[in-house]
């Protein structure tokens, strides 16, 4: 095992770098830029029971050191993901992939997870209870401990794969949600999803995004994400996947020192298609610089 190897719910990752859902499609777009088998794994585009087109455009705005998106879980639906996207992915990616699942009711989550549980290519289920861009679902499940626990428990009943609950930062106390997921049987939590934000166009005097509000990501949110990862990793025993604004190898180490077992990288992929490759390749040198022999020794040292 290499010095960058980490363990995520009993499965080894060659390194802790995981492109985040919604920024990496179903992988094959990035396989045109580099060999994506160098990744720890990646979390594929948030998948729902039925196909979704989602929010009107503009769906993208910019902010200092970041961006705001209001895509709203566009995806072809779980059936097509299994019959078309996963076979296409299998030609370019030979590791287990993380399946990202979203829903609008308990039934939705259960159905989609049941379907994906049967797929050998899927190593983990990441259950998104934190999308800020859909109405009547998504984040509604992630802002109340009881609702978060009910999704966790329902999904755990239909899968033997590790269940990772993806948490929203748009709450008063994220540790309460994390603990509720842990108590309901979650194998890990991942955080943070995007922070709600908006921009207004001075010329038109209207919100830039057709959806008015969206989710802020990018380096702007890194300190907030780091703080929440630190809080949650001190509040639960299960592994924490840290994400939010990571764009350098140094950020990866900082997030792991805050308690993350692995990290997800989102917005950075969109401005630099090679971001994850550069971060992975840069890790050994940065580890040397700070006297870090293995990433394993880092977890939660702070």
């Amino acid at each position: 095992m290499g010095r960058m190897t980490v363990n995520l719910c009993g499965q080894h990752l060659d390194n802790p770098v995981i492109p985040a859902s919604g920024t990496f499609g179903f992988g094959y777009e990035f396989a045109e830029w580099y060999d994506i088998n160098i990744l720890g794994t990646f979390s594929f585009k948030g998948t729902t029971r039925e196909p979704r087109f989602c929010n009107p455009t503009p769906r993208i705005a910019e902010c200092p050191a970041g961006m705001i998106n209001a895509v709203g879980l566009q995806n072809p639906g779980v059936k097509q993901v299994i019959t078309e996207e996963l076979p296409k992915l299998s030609r370019v990616f030979h590791k287990k992939v993380m399946a990202n699942v979203s829903g609008f009711s308990l039934d939705d989550y259960v159905y989609t997870c049941e379907q994906l549980d049967r797929e050998d290519a899927v190593g983990w289920l990441e259950v998104n209870i934190s999308c800020p861009n859909v109405h009547g679902g998504g984040m509604a499940f992630g802002t109340d401990p009881e609702a978060a626990a009910s999704v966790t428990a329902a999904v755990k009943k239909v899968t033997r794969k590790p269940v990772i609950m993806k948490l929203s930062p748009n709450v008063t106390d994220i540790t309460a949600i994390a603990r509720a997921c842990e108590n309901a049987g979650a194998d890990a939590v991942s955080l943070i999803n995007t922070l709600q934000g908006m921009r207004i166009d001075l010329r038109t005097r209207r919100p830039v995004l057709a959806n008015i509000m969206g989710g802020v990501s990018g380096p702007a949110v890194f300190p907030v994400a780091l703080r929440m990862v630190w809080q949650v990793s001190h509040a639960v025993q299960i592994p924490v996947i840290g994400m939010g604004g990571i764009s350098t190898s140094e950020d990866v180490l900082e997030m792991m020192m805050a308690g993350a077992s692995a990290v997800e990288i989102g917005a950075a992929n969109l401005v630099d298609p090679m971001a994850c490759k550069r971060i992975i390749e840069g890790l050994p040198e940065v580890m040397d610089r700070y006297g870090i022999k293995t990433l394993d020794e880092l977890k939660g040292v702070s």
Binding site: K45, I60, L270, P273
Partner: peptide, 14 residues
């Protein structure tokens, strides 16, 4: 259209 990535990853310009 306003784009996030420009190369097909983010679904921002669908």
């Amino acid at each position: 259209e306003r784009m996030g990535c420009g190369f097909g990853a983010c679904m921002g310009c669908s």
